[in-house]
Design a protein around this nucleic acid. Structure first.
Length: 245
DNA sequence: TGGAATGTTGGAAC
DNA sequence: CGTTCCAACATTCC
């Protein structure tokens, strides 16, 4: 479900609820004061990477869909109990198996919007600065670092590295400067392609590395290894994705 | 059918 | 006290 582009789609699907008043709220999350938010109007839906933000006058509800989170709109056919349910008269939204939190601070104090690859405030310069400050970090970890590339997930990581022909085992500091810039640029570019393809239900069709077995560039085998500090599965072509020294 | 997967967290361990 | 590690969580698919 997640990765930044999917959250953008969620935000777009919920646009009809902007400005609407919550007439009832419930769910299994213990991090929400359901009574307090009943009667509040939704000022806006925002997002920061994989965080989906429901902005109310006096607080923000933060939804993180994690690996298996789901949502449904005006549809109660799911068997599971929603973690969070917001009703707007006869219409409603349900969120399932996600992490829900309440934020009381102003969002600008909580989030660095320039780190979100899909936000207009995204700053490549700022990302490069953070990367240069972490030369020891593996590039496969760097792309998954939400403080640097908020919204990038494992699929985007694999596709970005394949597209710029960079081996995931490189350290940030060993990449030539143009490659580091290319990585930063492609993280944004591919995220928007992901968005378009996901909307067209053709995301998987465009995967070049993720879950693939053969490199479409040179016909060599794509390797699967569990890499980085979080041991995420990483697909890459050791032949065309360069390992710098 | 069991294992793995678009992810993060909190607390234990060191 | 800082860091690192790992279990836990939850759902769907192959």
């Amino acid at each position: 479900m997640p990765e930044g582009p999917s959250i953008i789609i969620l935000k777009e699907e919920l646009q009809p609820f902007v400005g609407k008043k919550i007439t009832a709220a419930g769910g299994t999350s213990k991090n929400v004061d359901y009574k307090a938010i009943t009667g509040s109007r939704v000022l806006d839906f925002r997002s920061w990477g994989k965080h989906f933000l429901i902005c109310l006058p006096d607080r923000t509800l933060r939804i993180h869909l994690l690996m298996f989170g789901k949502y449904s709109i005006n549809d109660d056919t799911r068997p599971a109990q929603p973690r969070l349910r917001l009703e707007f008269g006869k219409k409603f939204i349900n969120f399932y198996s996600c992490a829900v939190n309440t934020i009381l601070e102003p969002l600008d104090e909580v989030y660095d919007w320039s780190a979100d690859v899909m936000n207009p405030a995204w700053s490549a310069r700022s990302a490069l600065k953070k990367l240069r400050a972490n030369p020891h970090m593996l590039v496969c970890d760097a792309l998954l670092d939400q403080q640097i590339f908020s919204g990038v997930g494992n699929i985007i990581k694999n596709e970005v590295l394949y597209r710029i022909r960079v081996n995931p085992k490189n350290k940030v500091g060993s990449l030539p400067a143009p490659k580091l810039r290319a990585m930063t640029k492609e993280a944004v570019h591919y995220s928007f392609q992901f968005l378009d393809w996901k909307k067209a239900f053709s995301l998987k069709k465009h995967w070049l590395a993720h879950t693939k077995k053969i490199c479409s560039r040179d016909g060599h085998a794509i390797i699967k290894e569990y890499l980085g500090k979080t041991n995420r599965r990483t697909f890459f072509c050791p032949t065309c994705q360069v390992l710098y020294r």
